[in-house]
Design a protein around this nucleic acid. Structure first.
Lengths: 274, 274
DNA sequence: ATTGTCAATCTCACATTATGAGAATTTCCA
DNA sequence: TGGAAATTCTCATAATGTGAGATTGACAAT
């Protein structure tokens, strides 16, 4: 293992459950020597990724908060979402409206608004979403290039089966195809037991899916008619978002960074040979 | 320069102005060989600190958003702030209410609420505040242990002079002392030209300052009487916050992490010998 | 299919640099 | 003014990061 990986491994142990570490406990956990652990911590502190609190205690540092700000400021999808989501939610009744975004191979909740108290805290920005469970996840799966879908199928075969997404690759593939045709996906209580999820795809300026807009409905009844109406609204909202970020990446846009950002997370897997 | 520092240097070039980089431009900017740049980028991607977008473009990655979430969830000061700030702002009229927090040697805006449109976007969570300008900054300066105050005086001497905080160390020291006695600080248009800032200190469970609560007033008139009333309210609010996080770190609290977090950012500088 | 281009990884000899035990230093608190 | 805890320093040794160039893979155009 390279020393670079070893150093970044330090960041991994800072979790929600154990957000504060002393160097001694790091040594215990990671098996590094005390010298090395101190060296890593010192360099991570200098980079701002860690910060010292109290005597000998360390936590995640200010650079992380600053970099998240940068990501937020530069994200055209977030900006577009903040513009159109409040109006959309009003039309949908009690629930929550979310944007999830693909970053490399991770699906991250990047924005949520809700009119149900307590939901904001349980699903805040930054939450990693499952890859095969829930309306947003399934929908994104459906719009992935085939190569990536295969990879995920092989990796999450069991979860895919228990989610009823298909027993075989052909099964699975057909289900994905159906979702593409439907333009939206639905999930009945897959994440939140007493809620229904509806999701629609958001595309980058040049075609590939970059994320999804999804609605979580908690207000009964879940009649087919009502869900169809909502699906339609979500789909229109997602199309609006796609259009906004596509316009940013058109040749008339002046900001090269906005262009690149609007293209969105890659649909391309890094090469990997063995 | 160690290779660890060299690798983390990659993160430094991802700025608000240039949030997207290709490996080739990284090579140009940083002077690394192409092999090395690719190796760094690959490892940073595996750690989630970078993510690939489009072909050959990279931006800051999902781990940063996830780690910011962790920081938010674990931060008792943020939680306390979200509880008491809305009510406090209602009593203060038009303006904005902020919590700034010391992380190591950086002063970061960690939460803001406002009833003026457009202010939220200009001053979002994650913004790094100046060390000597504005009510919050000056106030925190005033409550720093003397060693750190000296260090900052030596480092920011010019800014301190032009901010009218003192021509000499004795001058400066006396001004800080006065702010400590006042319990609050004020700034007239130091950051925002047509606003007045009022700040009060937030202390950790065991004494040292961890941050500040500050109010930005944009509604005239700025009469002495009104400002005195507001100062009093801010000071009470800050005291409330100090109490909440002190209670978390008392011996009856069960969560050791909450304890450590509540102690807050260190008042201690890392050792540095030359 | 075929070719050209770009992105990313691989190979390998070489030299730089990370490592860890223990000593030395600094800081903090009583 | 001690004494304990936290942190940095020293240095010989071994490990590993480095970079030029070749290679591979992906993709688009013809």
């Amino acid at each position: 293992m390279s020393s670079l990986v070893r150093m970044l491994g330090v960041l991994d142990v800072f979790s929600e459950d154990v957000p504060v570490w002393t160097v001694d406990r790091l040594v215990e956990e990671l098996g590094y020597s005390r010298s090395t652990a101190y060296r890593y911590v010192k360099e991570l502190c200098e980079a701002g990724l860690l910060a010292q609190i109290g005597g000998g205690n360390y936590m995640l540092g200010p650079r992380i908060i600053m970099m998240d700000r940068q990501i937020r400021i530069c994200d055209p999808l977030l900006a577009a979402g903040q513009k159109i989501m409040p109006g959309l939610l009003d039309m949908c009744g009690k629930g929550a409206l979310r944007i999830c975004c693909l970053y490399g191979d991770k699906l991250i909740l990047i924005h949520q608004i809700t009119n149900i108290s307590g939901l904001e805290e349980r699903y805040p920005r930054g939450l990693q979403m499952p890859r095969v469970l829930g309306a947003a996840s399934k929908l994104i799966l459906a719009h992935l290039p085939e190569r990536q879908a295969i990879k995920i199928f092989l990796h999450h075969q069991d979860e895919i089966k228990s989610a009823g997404l298909g027993e075989s690759w052909e099964d699975f593939r057909a289900n994905l195809r159906q979702m593409r045709l439907d333009k939206t996906s639905r999930a009945y209580g897959e994440i939140d037991p007493d809620a229904v999820g509806i999701a629609a795809p958001i595309f980058g300026g040049d075609g590939p899916i970059v994320g999804s807009l999804s609605l979580v409905v908690k207000e009964r009844p879940f009649s087919e008619k009502r869900l169809d109406t909502l699906s339609d609204q979500i789909q229109k909202g997602a199309a609006q978002l796609s259009k906004i970020i596509a316009d940013l990446s058109n040749p008339y846009s002046e900001s090269p960074s906005a262009v690149a950002m609007a293209i969105g997370p890659s649909h391309k897997e890094p090469l990997r040979r063995r």
